[in-house]
Structure formats: C-alpha cells, structure tokens
Simulated scan of single mutants.
Amino acid sequence: MGKVLALFPIMYLSGGTCVTLIMIGASTMKIFFQMVFGEPCPLSPIEWYLVFTCTAILLAQLPNLNSIAGVSLIGAVTAVGYCALIFILSVVKGRLAHVSYEPPRGQSDTTMVFRAWNALGIIAFAFRGHNLVLEIQGTMPSDAKQPSRLAMWRGVMFAYLVIALCLFPLAIGGYWAYGNLIPTNGGMLCALHKYHEHDTSKFIIALTSLLVVINSLTSFQIYAMPVFDNLEFKYTRKKNRPCPRWLRIAFRGLFGCLAFFIAVTLPFLPSLAGLIGGVALPITLAYPCLMWLQIKKPQKRSINWYLNWTLGIIGMILSLLVVIGAIWGIVEQGIEIHFFSPQ
C-alpha cells in the first residue's frame, strides 16, 4: 500500500515536471536563437520541442542519481545565475508605465480564497524536488555512526534555502516591476524579453536565455531519474539480471518521446501548475509524518503520536484544499485549451 500511495505522485510529479521543462526549454531556445542571429526563427514551436527533447535524451544517459552530482551542480549554478540576472535587470529598469497591483475586479471573497489556495499549489510546484529526496538518500552510504538521513537533512535544508533565495526575490521584484503585466505564459523571462528587448543588451538577454536552457536540460535528467530507475528496477526484478545498456537507452528514449508527445498534445499544461503541485503535496506535508509513525511506532496517545497524526492530517487537508482551489480557479477563470498547437 505504501508503494502504491507513493509511486503515483512521485511518477506523476516527475513526468509533469519533465513535460514542463520541455516547454520552458524549447521556448527559451527560440528566444536565444532570435537574440544571437537577430532574425525570425525558421523552426516551428513543435520543432523546437523536438530539438530540446532530443538533446535532453542524449544527455540523460548517466546510470543513476549518484552519478549526476555534477549535473545537479551545473543546474544549481545556472538557476542562481539566471534568477539573479532577471531580478537585477527587472529592478534596475524600474516599473513599467500603467502597472497595476489590484486584483481583478468583480471577484467574490470565495474566489479570492480559492485563488490563494491555488497559489499555494503553484508555490509547491516551484519548490518541486520532494519526490527526489528519498531517491537521492537511497544512493548514499549509511551506517550506524553516520546515517544517511543526517547528510540528507543538511542537503535538503541547503537546497531549499538556495531555492528560496532565488525565487522569492525574483517573485517580489518581478511583481514590483511588472505587476499584472507579466505574461500569462512564459513568466519573468518572457516579460524581460517583451518589455526590455530594445533597451537591454542582447548579450545579457541571450546569456539569460542560455542559462535557462542549460538549467532545463540538467533538470530534465534529475527529475526523470526516478522514472528511469523504476523501469530498470522492474526489468531487473523480473529477469534477475542487470539492465543492459541498450535497454537503458531504449527506456530513456521512450520516456523522452512520451514527454514530448504530452508537451505537444497539452501545451496548456503550465496553466495547471497549481493542480500538479497540489496533487503531489502530500509527499511533503503528510507522508513523512505517517511514515514516522509506521517506522518508529511511538506509544499510542503519547505527545509524538498526537503530534505526527495531527501534522499528517493537517497536511492532507491542506493538500485537498490546494487541489480544490486549483480546480475552482480553472472552472472560474477557464484556460485556453489548444491541443497540438504549442505557442
């Protein structure tokens, strides 16, 4: 039961993240091409999706999470770099004319509450990575004197600190600079390209775009690894032998093709970020408490027993509210559904 409850949200979040990375990386490749060559791009959006996916599959051939520490470091450095560049440029250029910070008019208090819950789901999706924690910890050496959980805890704290230092200044500075004029699709990078293309060095915009592309390529390998590991584990358990290299390449190519197909079929998927984050939120807010109860088996009705049950139930309720808020937002505002027509 534990595997069933954990496998779906982990695979779902990994797959959804990889599909989103294809969209982000491909659209940013297009911006980079335009900045470097200064002419309209000859490729269609679908062709850019294919270019990014093929590049990601070629790079995603390392065997396991333990072997991609360098890839993770590159992803972290590029993320810090492009977040810093976008934040500095947006703040230095100042606020746009006619910027508004008012919420849309005509919304009821109920709608505003549901929109706030949906925002929590989007934040959870932005801090995605909780589906990788146990996968990474499983590759680390562990013994009674130096259990892997201690090193993993320090790593998680540092990683989320870096993410917070990147995303919160970017969100605050970007909202101050652009307000409600931030593009619905593309976010801060598209806002920078749209509003400051003519008064900012092309080199800076091209460099920012390149950092986003590199980060998307490295992140694709990291978030896809749980899917790769699960496929190879099923083969190894069934055949009782290691997974051959050609089959590993086939598994990764198959997953990349599937992610490409979903990205092309459902180009409006980023509009569902709140829902994607909300469905996977129990992995962060509820599962650790319930796992602790099952593993440690504290005395019933003790302080630790009450504390973990309370936190686990609150986590499940909050996750449910986030999902309801995301669905409410989709129903209330609607989304522009366009199958097989990425922008």
Rank of each mutant, 00 (worst) to 15 (best):
F233G: 08
C243L: 10
L21K: 13
I214F: 01
W176N: 06
I214Y: 00
T310Q: 08
E232F: 01
P298R: 03
A164E: 08
F261A: 15
C54V: 15
Y178G: 01
T20G: 14
R252T: 04
K234C: 11
I313G: 08
I24L: 14
G94C: 12
V227A: 10
Q294R: 14
E47Y: 03
G25D: 04
I303C: 10
G329P: 04
Y82E: 03
P244Q: 09
N185P: 00
D143E: 10
H338S: 14
G121E: 00
H98S: 14
V133Y: 01
R301D: 11
G155K: 01
K300E: 09
M152G: 01
V80P: 01
A76T: 14
V80G: 12
F158T: 08
T139E: 12
P40F: 06
I314R: 06
T78E: 06
L161V: 11
F37K: 00
G179C: 05
W305G: 07
L254W: 04
I123D: 03
V92Y: 13
I262H: 07
A76V: 14
V4D: 05
S27L: 06
L167A: 05
L58H: 09
C83T: 13
G278M: 06
R237G: 00
G138I: 01
Y12H: 12
L272I: 06
S201D: 04
T28N: 07
L290P: 02
V156M: 13
L132P: 00
C54A: 15
I314L: 13
R154A: 07
I303D: 07
G16E: 02
V36W: 01
